[in-house]
Design a protein around this nucleic acid. Sequence first.
DNA 1: TTTATTTGCTTAAACGTTTACCTAAATTCG
DNA 2: CGAATTTAGGTAAACGTTTAAGCAAATAAA
Lengths: 345, 345
Amino acid sequence: MTDGSKSNKVNMKTLAKVLNVSIATISKALRDSHDIGDDTKQRVIETARLLHYVPNPYASSLRKRSSNTIAIVIPEIADSFFSQAINGIETIVDLEKYHALIYLTHDSYEREKQMFNDLTSGRVDGILMSVASNTEDISHIQDLQQAGVPIVFFDRVCEDIPTAKIKTDDFNSAYMATSHLLDQGCKNISLVTIEGYPSILQAREEGYKKALAERDIEANDANSISCSNKYTNENIEVLKEHIQKVKPDGIIATVEHLATTTYLACEELKLNIPNDIKVVCFTNQITASILNPSLTTILQPAYEMGRKAAELLFGHLTGKPIQLEKENIILPSKLIVRNSTRIPD
Amino acid sequence: MTDGSKSNKVNMKTLAKVLNVSIATISKALRDSHDIGDDTKQRVIETARLLHYVPNPYASSLRKRSSNTIAIVIPEIADSFFSQAINGIETIVDLEKYHALIYLTHDSYEREKQMFNDLTSGRVDGILMSVASNTEDISHIQDLQQAGVPIVFFDRVCEDIPTAKIKTDDFNSAYMATSHLLDQGCKNISLVTIEGYPSILQAREEGYKKALAERDIEANDANSISCSNKYTNENIEVLKEHIQKVKPDGIIATVEHLATTTYLACEELKLNIPNDIKVVCFTNQITASILNPSLTTILQPAYEMGRKAAELLFGHLTGKPIQLEKENIILPSKLIVRNSTRIPD
DNA sequence: TTTATTTGCTTAAACGTTTACCTAAATTCG
DNA sequence: CGAATTTAGGTAAACGTTTAAGCAAATAAA
C-alpha cells in the first residue's frame, strides 16, 4: 500500500519487443537452446541484464510442471539437531539453485497430514522430512508418494514407506551410552524419553536394553520415564519424582531439552553429577562442554544427515540413476565422554 | 491409495466435466463467489472433496500475481535466537495459511544480494529479514522495495530503509549488562564482538560505553576484541591472547556462540568464573542455567520478535491500515543474573 | 404491462513461460 | 546442379487459474 510505484515489470514480451524478435526466441536464447544463433543469444542476454529481467517462477513452474522448490518438514526448529540439519540441507539447496519451503509440524500428526495434503498440489518437487512422533497412520505420506512426489526421510524416518532414509545408529549409540554408564559403575540406569515416542526412541530403548542384557541386568519398566516434548518446568517435577522413587545412579536423556531438565532436577534434589548420578544426553548443543559439569553426549551428525538427505533427493530430481527406495544410509553418532559420567577420584 | 486412483491430476477442468458446468463456475464456487447458487456451490465443494482436488498454487499465483508465500532471510539458523524467531514467524505464517521460504545468507552480502535479486521475480509477497553483518550497500534492498515487495526487519535491521523494524533494546541491554558487571565489582570489562559488525552490535557497544562513562571509566579500545562469526577453535586462541594481554575482570560476549568460546578460553587459562573474571552473554540458549557456572545472560524476546514481525507483514499484506514505514517496535530484553557474575563470598 | 434489476451461469481473455511444430534461407552433399 | 540437411528463427498451443464481460431467465419495480 506504500506508493504508486510503477513496478515496470519487464518480462519476455518486453525483451521481445525491444529486440524485435519473438518471445520464443527470448525464451530459447535464455535457456541456451541450439535453435538460436550465438549473436542473437548474446543480444538477448545482454538486454535481459540491462533491463534487469528476472523470470517469473510461477509461469515457469506452471508450464514446466516443476517448481525448483522442495519442502523441509520437521517437528520443530528450536533444536540444535534440526537447525544444524537445515544448515546441511541449505548447502545443497543453494548449490542446486533450488528453493526451500519450511514447515513445522510441532510433532502433531494432524498438522503433518494437513501439510501433506497441500503438498500434493505440485508446490514442491520433493520433500525432506522427519516425521512427527505421533504419526501412526501413514496414508498421507503414501498418497503423496503415489502422486509422484519423492520423499527422503532423515532422522525420524518412517520405516514402512519405501524410499531413502538417512538415519543415525540410534540403537548402537544408545548401546554405547548405556555400556559407558555401566563401565563407569552405574547399576541402576534410567532412560528418559518423551511422549509420543518416535521410532528412533524405540531404537534407543532397544540399544539401552541390549547393553543391560549383556551384563545380565534386567531392564525394569520402572526405569523408563516419559516427559512432555515441550521444554517445560513440569518435566522437572516429573523427573524429580522419578528419581526419588527409582533412585537411579545413571540417566540417559534421549532428547536434547531433557539435558537441562535433568540437570535442574538433580540440582533441586541436591544430587551431585557425576558423584551421585551420572548423565548422558543425546544432544548437539555446543554448550555441552561448558556445562556444570560438562556433559557426556551422543553427538549426532546433524549437518551431514541433512546434507546427505538433500543430496539423495537432488540426485533423484536431476535424473541421476538413484533409486531412492534402495537408499538406507546410516551415519554414525559419536559418544563424547565428559565429566558428567566421570568416576569420582 | 485410498480411492484406488492413479496420479490422475484432478483440476478444475475435471470437476467442470464431472459436474457439467463451466470451469468458471468451479472457480467461483470454490472461492465462494456471490455469482454462484448455493446448491451448485455445495455440489462443487462436495465433488472437489471427493476427487481430492487440490488447487495448483502456481497457476493461481500466476494469474493473481500474488503467491501466498513469504521469504525469511536470515544470516544463520544454528543459533537459538534465529531458530526461536522462526518459531514465532511460523505461528503466524501457519495461521494465515501462507508458506515460508527460508534463505540463509551466512552473513554474506554477496549471497544476500543474489537472493534479493531472485526475489524481485514475484516469488514472494513479502520478506522478513535480518540483514547480513557486512551489508553496507543497501541498493538491493531498495530495489526490492521499489519493486513493491514489502519488507519487515527484525533484530538486525537496516536503519536506512523506511519500513517496519522490530528490534530489541540493544543499547539498553548492553548498558544493563555492563552496569551489572560494574555493580559486581568489575573494573576492566572487555567487549567481545564479531567481525563484520552489524548495527545491533554497534548499539551494544554504545550501551557498554555509556555504562562505563557514567562511572567515569574511560572505554579503552584495547578492551574491544573481535572474533570470527564462525564457531571455531581459533576464536578461543584469539580470546586467550586478549585476556592475557588486557587482563579483564569482566567479559561481555555479544553473540551466542561466544559464550562457549569464552568459557573454554577461561578454562584453558585456569581462570575461575566468576572469581577471576565475570561473564555476561547475549544468548537465548536454554542451557545457560546449567553451565559451569550458570551463565548470566541477556535474553532476547526472539519468539515474540519473529511473531511481531510476521504480524506486521501480514497486517500489511491483508490490507489492514498498517503503514510499515511508521512501525518501529522495540521489545525489551531481560538481564538474567546467574552465577557467572556472582560476587565470591 | 413494460422495464429494470437480480440471479446464476458461460465465454474468453488474461497471467508469463515453454515447446512441439512450421518455415525459409543457408549450407552440404552426391 | 538439384536434393537433402542444417540453421535460425517464428507460430501458436499449452500449463491451471481468475475474472471481466456477457447473457438468458427469473424476479421486482413502475
